[in-house]
Nucleic acid binder design. Structure first.
Lengths: 185, 185
DNA sequence: GTGACCATGTAACGAGTTACATGATTAA
DNA sequence: TTAATCATGTAACTCGTTACATGGTCAC
């Protein structure tokens, strides 16, 4: 069901073709919020069209169809956004790995934590670049993905903070540790 | 594929029946990392069994089967955990909502942000309670979900920080705003 | 003309949800 | 005896992935 709202959300910003939407899923939204490929996007656009949530605004060369959100679609999107935040039904592989980290011997866990810090630092560099770009191109500090980028920035900073804490805890337990047993207390 | 590793990870901590695993997915791992129901867990356990990644350790009353991870399963789990962290293929409805928030009129967006703060505060209370419980029962500050809980704590603090920033930005733009237009530089 | 990119589609398969279905054990 | 809980399963459906498939346009 979320793909439907991801598409409505993108079309709410501006009309797009299936191809455009596929490209946009390769950017911020696809990297941090919801991933989708063209093979899923095209059939879903047909369903949205059948439900009158979007309409064909323009037909161009090479069979290109530009879709725009309808009033009905915009209403449904806003209704969905106003629902209370929840993490029900979460499926986050990144967090799952962190969750299961204690299954590794401490030295290996520490290595993964270092790679986690590296990864988070790279993401922060990327997001900082995106924020500069948004400010430069759109003169905007809220819309056009800026709010999401600011969120990502803070989450990755929190991740780095956590990883440093975890490495320190692992080090505490390392003298005489056999697996996790030495880490307890 | 991740369900497979979630199950291996849980069985790596201790042997469990399908029923036990279903219960455990209602706790931390299911709330913050990976969600699954019994109708998916039982078939997946059969596949893991067929692949010799787990074994039946014990059969009890009411058809209960207790599964334990095999050496092969533990090796595969560790190999998966050692892969470089990535957010490829992310599907996070919670973040998707935050991403699309600028689709709402500022007053509505602000309301959602307040609800986001409330929700994050509740999660922090829950996680703090869980950390106390883990320390009390297991005398542990790293394993048994403690590392994951510490991560959650930091992510929710970051969320609250972000939401306050976002509310302030919205307020900045509100004098004379029509939709997002008034927010742009 | 040919390679890069624009643009859309479908088929087969695997992952995940909802609902249905069954029966054993235990405590009140 | 009956309600709660333990315990496992399957069928039909929707969602998502991988791979296959086709053809148009444009710059060199």
């Amino acid at each position: 069901m979320s793909l439907r709202f991801a598409l409505l959300g993108l079309l709410n910003e501006r009309p797009c073709s299936g191809y455009d939407l596929t490209r946009r899923f390769e950017e911020g939204i696809g990297a941090y919020a919801w991933h989708a490929q063209h093979s899923q996007i095209y059939p879903e656009l047909k369903k949205l069209l059948a439900d009158d949530l979007i309409r064909v605004a323009e037909e161009g060369a090479r069979g290109r169809k530009t879709y725009a959100i309808t009033d009905q679609g915009a209403d449904l999107l806003r209704e969905w956004l106003l629902q209370r935040p929840t993490t029900a039904g979460v499926r986050n592989e990144y967090v799952l790995r962190l969750f299961l980290l204690p299954a590794l011997p401490p030295a290996d866990a520490e290595q993964v934590l270092h790679k986690t810090i590296e990864f988070a630092e790279e993401q922060i560099t990327l997001l900082t670049g995106e924020l500069d770009e948004i400010a430069r191109v759109h003169g905007d500090t809220v819309g056009n993905g800026a709010m999401a980028a600011q969120y990502g920035l803070r989450v990755y900073r929190a991740t780095i903070d956590w990883a440093h804490w975890a490495i320190a805890r692992l080090a505490d337990g390392e003298h005489g540790a056999d697996g996790l047993a030495g880490l307890e207390q």
